[in-house]
Design a protein around this nucleic acid. Structure first.
Lengths: 340, 340
DNA sequence: GCGAGCAATGTAAGCGCTTACATAATAAAG
DNA sequence: CTTTATTATGTAAGCGCTTACATTGCTCGC
């Protein structure tokens, strides 16, 4: 067929090596079922012809793409970057390629992206958090696409999880904040709608307050989007209250850095006048001055494990398997003893 | 064929709508060649059956995947994040999906990733910088994969570029530094081997020195990898010199932030005792105290334009088209007048 | 009113691989 | 030495689309 100078196909390799197309295919996919001598001939021919398997044909015949999709809220800040990088590295080691989309924290965009990646033939999907319409989970099941939830660990999530307990982590951090004498706490949270991580963290704070006999109803809470400038603005709002908080707990490090920045601009001393805490422990947390008290999340480990679990899931067709990773409260300079 | 409850295929849609498979395919791919009434019937059938085209089959028949690959040095720091995000958004708007890999700044890994993404059927590729083995460019040409270089603009690059002039930008920044009275300058550069951006920036510094009658041979230069800790370490080395520099210019903001951090730890005043500059103007640059003097790079614009050019390239089979974006020197607190 | 020209649709031939099944060759068992 | 199990390889049937080409039914100009 392809007698002239064309991209060589499997058939050409077979002809050159003097074997059948099936044998060439087996050399590529199940090499242990082929005799050593035959393999040698075949790989020689492949080398000589410069053959590369045609992706589309392979996908169509084998019904899998060796591709994994990830949909993350954003690539712009560092929150997901490190985990995603580790995820990609591990996938690569296992022969998979990573398809990436971002949803800008919007459920509608996320859904669109999920459908798109599935249509594009992703064998599996990495999703952030568990909070999404049930119809999406049904869709994934119907399409027989394995999916995994990261950044959240929840025993009764609709899919396997590789993540951590956002509520417990924040609760622990709050206990620490209170141990420094703070009982008038302000909170700068990410939007909780459609974001179980933000919601769990809020709940962690409330539970810590309650178990110390404080009324969570008195908590000053501002919800905003995860941007530095928004953190700064929210800081202003909290400090403008009649009785401003002595400690401000933020939904993540990005918000906390925004608050810290504004405090510096306004010459409000941290932690002298007000303490500030974050969540995630991204690199930024240790660069700002004072360094951020925050919750350390093992991002790389999470990304790596997520890749392992997801690949196992779809290769071994294994049952759901979840992994809960441990976080660690990191006390640094931005948290200080309450004055008076 | 698929009489039972199966994933519906194009043939099923055709049957349900009472048309041929070709017509259904045309409704999907070239809708203007189909009568309005026919289209209605077909889309109805698609809706009812919940049909989604099979990716593999489509790729095989149409010989394109509507997928673009990007290989960036790293996802971990913010340098490429914003541009990549914009790139992805624009691709999405144009119906393409993004495949992402990272090379850890290593040419061998980059080459492997390039081949992998091509094998995976990427229609086009986004590459960072132009500095790579010529055999790779030949490979891309042979495979007929369109590729684009970003983060670098060079008139004689082997491919279309969407980027900026690293040399000129750094030269301009250096002029500014010298205008503040500095003539003993230290440099913390990224590794220049295999990295034309790092090399061009160095060259920009040297040229600025020369055109001001200074000897670039006296420049204290340390090459290191783009990590905060490495910037800190290099700062120590430069300050340990017999005659330490009065200004330290860094290859990017990450290195600069590292240097700044170490200065603070050592109680060395910036810019009082030493000035520090960066490159890129990532968010970080405005968060640190003092804020970084740096070169502003229009990352989002670059990512967006790169997507436009690349898609045009492979859809219109257009000739190479390059875009040079302008940078802007941002003078901020980390650069001060030389003492004495 | 007829043939040219055009628009809408249908027919069917691939696209390049994987894999179930058939076959051949060899080893193990009786 | 035959029978059976086992292993290595070959044969060929799809996988579900796209698209070149064929066909049909119009509209129009003269």
């Amino acid at each position: 067929m392809s007698n002239i100078r064309e991209v060589p196909k499997l058939e050409d390799v077979a002809k050159a090596a003097g074997v059948s197309t099936a044998t060439v295919s087996r050399c590529l996919n199940t090499p242990d079922r082929v005799l050593e001598g035959t393999k040698l001939k075949v790989f020689d021919a492949i080398e000589v012809l410069g053959y590369t398997p045609n992706f589309g044909a392979r996908v169509m015949a084998a019904k899998r793409t060796l591709t994994i999709g990830a949909i993350i809220p954003t690539m712009e800040n560092a929150i997901f970057a490190r985990g995603l990088q580790a995820f990609q590295e591990e996938l690569h080691d296992r022969g998979y390629t990573l398809l990436v989309s971002s949803s800008a924290y919007r459920p509608d965009i996320e859904e669109e992206q999920i459908r798109k990646l599935v249509t594009r033939g992703a064998d599996g999907l990495l999703l952030i958090g568990e909070d999404r319409d049930n119809s999406i989970y049904q869709y994934l099941k119907r399409q027989e696409v394995s999916a995994l939830i990261a950044w959240t660990y929840s025993a009764d999530a609709p899919l396997s999880c590789v993540g951590f307990d956002n509520r417990k982590s924040m609760q622990l951090l709050t206990e620490n904040v209170m141990a420094f004498g703070h009982n008038r706490i302000g909170v700068i949270s990410g939007f909780t709608k459609g974001n179980d991580r933000a919601r769990s963290r809020m709940q962690g704070i409330r539970e810590a307050l309650m178990s110390n006999g404080l009324d969570p109803g008195e908590l000053a809470v501002i919800e905003t989007s995860y941007e530095i400038e928004c953190g700064a603005k929210a800081f202003d709002q909290l400090m403008a209250l009649e009785r401003p908080p002595t400690a401000i707990m933020c939904g993540n490090d990005v918000l906390a850095v925004g608050a810290l920045k504004r405090a510096r601009e306004r010459n409000i001393n941290v932690p002298g006048d007000v303490s500030i805490t974050g969540f995630d422990d991204i690199e930024l947390a240790r660069i700002v001055d004072p360094a951020l008290t925050t919750v350390h999340v093992p991002h790389r480990e999470m990304g790596r494990q997520a890749a392992c679990v997801l690949v196992d899931l779809l290769e071994k067709n294994g049952e759901p398997r979840s992994i809960e990773l441990q976080t660690l409260v990191q006390i640094r300079g931005s948290l200080g003893r309450r004055k008076i």
